[in-house]
């Protein structure tokens, strides 16, 4: 009959090198027997003494690792920081690259839906691959007792201290992209005819007459907005001047785009005629969209003033001595 001790010793030596198994098994068994005997002498019965001793010794795998010096962590402190740095670096661009490539090949072989599916599948498999292979490589490095050749840390590798910014970089960048898209759309929508109408032929979406009226003003407001966003990107802070400039540019946009919209002069009249809309519905839709755009811009204007106010307040506080 195998005893608990037999099973414990077996479980322990199973994960030590074969050449040492018998030796360690004999040692361990004799030590366990001594400890059990010691407990029995104090009046404990053999069975519960055996259980207590083995419980104290703990999980066999852990004990075996003490004998062999096997590492109980996948990646230890020596390589953890390098592993983390490399994993983050790779995670930033490798999955995106694989996603774009697989979306591209799916697009060529199929349609837009396939491309989206290919993008998501590529992204996920990229994340899994980067995570798995870097971790595997470092886990092996951790166990192989070799010089990894990873350069030692030096003071020259210290990063420069980032300037304190209230506005995250992504915010002005996204805004600039958006303004450029809107501007390009407006120019194309007033000049290129791609809207098919019932009678055959194509029409432009917006009234090309805008070129001699409101459109230059709209484009001017977008240009000013882009300039303001560039200032935000560089300085990283809202200021009163920026907030006022934002108010001016937003007001100009709302007037220059909203007025013709409300007057129903924005869309190409020939195109509208081909739709056969009811006059009231068209007017209310125009007003609704104008109000919506104005509200969104109002929010951004208020945000600008609130942020500028907060900044000027903290700037004052930081000068005053702490009481």
């Amino acid at each position: 009959m195998t005893t608990l001790t037999d099973r414990y010793v077996h479980a322990t030596v199973r994960s030590v090198p074969e050449s040492r198994r018998d030796e360690i098994a004999a040692e361990l068994r004799s030590s366990i027997d001594d400890m059990v005997a010691g407990r029995v002498e104090t009046g404990e019965d053999t069975e519960s003494a055996e259980r207590a001793v083995l419980t104290d010794l703990g999980e066999p795998g852990r004990l075996a690792s003490q004998y062999t010096g096997e590492k109980l962590q996948l990646i230890g402190p020596r390589y953890f920081l390098v592993w983390k740095r490399i994993t983050i670096k790779l995670m930033i661009w490798v999955p995106a690259l694989i996603a774009v490539v697989s979306a591209g090949s799916a697009w060529i072989n199929g349609d837009g839906g396939d491309a989206i599916g290919g993008f998501i599948a590529g992204l996920l498999s990229g994340i899994v691959h980067v995570g798995f292979w870097t971790t595997l490589a470092f886990a092996i490095l951790e166990r192989a007792n070799v010089d990894s050749g990873i350069p030692e840390w030096t003071v020259d590798r210290l990063p420069s201290v980032p300037r304190k910014r209230d506005i995250p970089v992504a915010e002005p960048v996204a805004a600039i992209v958006w303004f450029v898209v809107v501007g390009v759309f407006l120019v194309l929508a007033t000049s290129v005819a791609w809207f098919e109408v019932d009678g055959g032929g194509k029409e432009v979406l917006l009234d090309s007459g805008l070129w001699s009226g409101w459109l230059p003003l709209i484009l001017l407001s977008l240009a000013v907005s882009i300039a303001l966003e560039v200032v935000k990107l560089v300085t990283g802070h809202w200021t009163w001047a920026l907030a006022i400039g934002n108010l001016a540019a937003s007001s100009l946009f709302v007037v220059a785009a909203g007025w013709p919209a409300v007057q129903r002069e924005l869309l190409n009249p020939d195109l509208v005629a081909s739709f056969g809309w009811e006059a009231d519905a068209y007017r209310y839709a125009s007003i609704g969209i104008t109000v919506g755009v104005a509200a969104a811009l109002l929010y951004s204007v208020i945000d600008g003033f609130v942020s500028a106010a907060r900044r000027s307040r903290t700037a004052v506080e930081s000068v005053e001595p702490v009481r």
């Binding site: 004799s30 030590s31 001594d34 400890m35 104290d56 010794l57 852990r62 003490q66």
Partner: peptide, 19 residues
């Protein structure tokens, strides 16, 4: 032997786990 050392150390005030 091992167990005796364990006891000796314990009696001397050095508590080491058997494992």
């Amino acid at each position: 032997h091992g167990y005796r050392l364990l006891q000796t150390l314990g009696d001397a005030g050095i508590n080491v786990d058997a494992n």
